[in-house]
């Protein structure tokens, strides 16, 4: 990521990459208290942990604020943190206008994971959220069509959960096959 040059010059729509510290401070001004940590993460996709109930608000600010300008949802995925009894959903955001990027992370309860949908902000979220629902069971409130994406419609369970046990068979199709090395 290219660090932005200092100063506050340039118009609102000017292309200007911000470094993660500047993004962090800007977010602190626009939606105070929504960020969980005192400092942002580092790396290629610096992490910002967000209060789950305010993730939609933060996302809207990230997209609509001219200086932030995150116009692209590059990826949306989830992690089952079984030992912490939560599921973390990660949003990779990128700005074509400013050429900076970050990762939002929000945690939901593992028992009943609920998070707001991003489909109204970035239409790309549609299938990504369906996949996340399919494989991890996260329900995205407000999603227009939250059906399974990869697994069959009548599948039971969410395969990327750490405690998922693969059924013996599906509609008479055995899911077990003798190892070919033993033949």
């Amino acid at each position: 990521m290219i660090a932005g040059s200092g100063g506050s010059g340039g118009g609102a729509g000017a292309s200007r990459a911000m470094d993660v510290q500047q993004i962090f401070e800007r977010l602190g001004q626009l939606c105070g208290g929504a960020l969980l940590d005192a400092a942002p993460g580092d790396g290629e996709w610096p992490r910002l942990n967000v209060v789950p109930t305010r993730v939609a608000e933060v996302a809207r600010v990230l997209r609509d604020d001219p200086a932030l300008g995150f116009d692209c949802l590059a990826n949306l995925t989830g992690v089952d943190l079984k030992s912490e009894d939560s599921i973390e959903v990660c949003y990779h955001l990128f700005s074509y206008r400013h050429r900076h990027q970050l990762m939002l992370a929000a945690r939901a309860s593992r028992g009943d994971p609920l998070l707001p949908t991003f489909t109204d902000l970035w239409p790309a979220a549609d299938w990504l959220e369906r996949e996340c629902f399919d494989l991890l069971g996260v329900r995205f409130i407000g999603h227009p069509d939250l059906r399974r994406l990869l697994m069959p419609e009548d599948w039971v369970g969410h395969p990327l959960r750490k405690d998922f046990i693969e059924p013996e068979e599906y509609h008479g199709i055995s899911t077990r096959r003798e190892s070919l090395l033993k033949l």
Binding site: P152, E153, Y170, I173
Partner: peptide, 10 residues
Amino acid sequence: SGTLTLKMAL
């Protein structure tokens, strides 16, 4: 011709 997923199997 190709990977047969369970969804496609039926």
